[in-house]
Design a protein around this nucleic acid. Structure first.
Lengths: 253, 253
DNA sequence: TGTTTTTAATACCAATTTAATACCAGATCC
DNA sequence: GGATCTGGTATTAAATTGGTATTAAAAACA
């Protein structure tokens, strides 16, 4: 047995079969990806050596190698000759886009308890600027959702969502996730465009976030679109600069 | 059953009939077009093999081939011998993330003239933190590139790049784009992971950016990786909060 | 009605991928 | 410094992929 194998590897065994409609190396990659992203194999952990893995799953070393290589291309693993294969930090694959979809999911993935305090829930006419951004006619009505977002009871962000009433007729008709509700109503968000910048908090917002006036904040403006390209939602958020990181992962090819 | 067919294909069955006033291959093309554009096949990039499809729909391979060819002419599919048929990614919406690759390109796309003032260009030992982030051994050497970035002659950002000397042996050996240079050296950046947050500028940085002390800034930390997953570069940037927007576009599906 | 075009089948060809074995080279550890 | 770990690479055979030629029936057309 390899010297550097951590406690028998901690990898669950699995039966790989040539009869399945997926090549062996992809079956193996899939299994390992599960083990890694599910947290069963901790960050920075070493994987068992290639020979050991080949032996354990009953395939050749080349097959193991192809599986590991494909996971490397995904950014989950890295290797060093003479040392072995290691799990990358920040391999929260499922989380890649969740930061943009749902506040609660985002918080959950960071291991924080999320909470919401409603500041405003009403219907009114769109301002000229909102009408422009949401592609509405002047005077069209919008639902306005202003929420204070909490992480472990600490104020983390203020979020103002504006949705045309044709997509959200009743702003009181839901609890929890706005996106889930919109999906239920048959208006699933499909694409989003975000702008991020750093701003100084105005007194009003600073007070609500329990920060001194002028503290730095991450300002995120988001426009969400339906599949047919129609604007669904406009959100302006202020995140506490001292407590929130926005993570983006991307390919440069 | 085909070995390489991905997960039974996920294609709904349909009854094709010679008695209809539409040739078999067009009936099949129509059905597949529906499945693709409706997004039912979006999660499977690959289609089942031609033989598998022929078998499943009870027609000959040539018929399947004609159907797939006509969809190719429409731009929905592409093929590779030995591999199979793939749904074009252009049918999914493309992500525009190039704003993250190069400062100069980013500026150019905003119609601004970009400039650079070198603050530091040297080689030294990696700090323990850098060694961890770049997967180096303690004492390994890194090139340190500290640049003041200008947009139309206004200071816009301060950027500190750290690259292991094994990838960038001579920090003076290039002008212009670091990424272009790394590509020329055979180390093309492949993937990046970014963290963004808002910070208050420390006096030193504030002075260099010609801002008052404590002004808000967008802090962007980026790690860039090679295709094989090895860390290539670590960058820490401070962007003026009053002059820079960071744009992200993405799909929520 | 004879001719051409389209349709759809069978059979065989060529490129690619898969997955194995055997051996090479760099790192680590004593 | 030399075992002996580690990953790296070259070579191979078999399986699977799409590619193509040939044929015949059906449909369209003159």
């Amino acid at each position: 047995m390899s010297l550097r194998t951590p406690e028998a590897g901690g990898i669950e065994p699995i039966e790989l079969s040539q009869d399945l409609p997926l090549p062996l190396y992809l079956q193996l990659a899939k299994h390992l990806r599960n083990q890694i992203t599910s947290g069963k194999l901790a960050e920075y952990d070493a994987l068992p050596g290639e020979r050991e893995l080949a032996d354990r799953f009953g395939v050749s070393r080349v097959t193991v190698r192809k599986a590991l290589s494909s996971l490397t291309a995904e950014g989950l693993l890295n290797k060093r000759q003479g040392s072995g294969w290691f799990i990358n930090s920040s391999t929260h694959v499922e989380q890649r886009l969740s930061a943009l979809t749902s506040f609660s999911e985002d918080m959950a993935s960071r291991g924080l308890q999320s909470g919401t305090v409603w500041l405003d829930r009403s219907i009114s006419r769109a301002t000229p600027e909102e009408a422009l951004l949401l592609n509405l006619r002047p005077g069209d009505q919008v639902a306005r959702l202003n929420r204070l977002r909490l992480a472990d009871k600490t104020p983390l962000a203020i979020e103002l969502s504006v949705v045309p009433t044709k997509y959200l007729p009743d702003p009181f008709g839901f609890e929890g996730s706005l996106y889930q509700h919109l999906r239920n109503l048959g208006h699933p968000p499909h694409r989003a465009l975000q702008r991020l910048s750093a701003v100084r908090l105005i007194p009003d917002l600073a007070r609500q976030l329990e920060l001194p006036e002028g503290a730095p904040a991450l300002y995120i403006e988001r426009r969400t679109f339906l599949e047919d390209g129609a604007p669904l939602e406009f959100v302006a958020s202020h995140y506490r600069g001292d407590a929130y990181d926005f993570v983006v992962e991307l390919n440069l090819t």
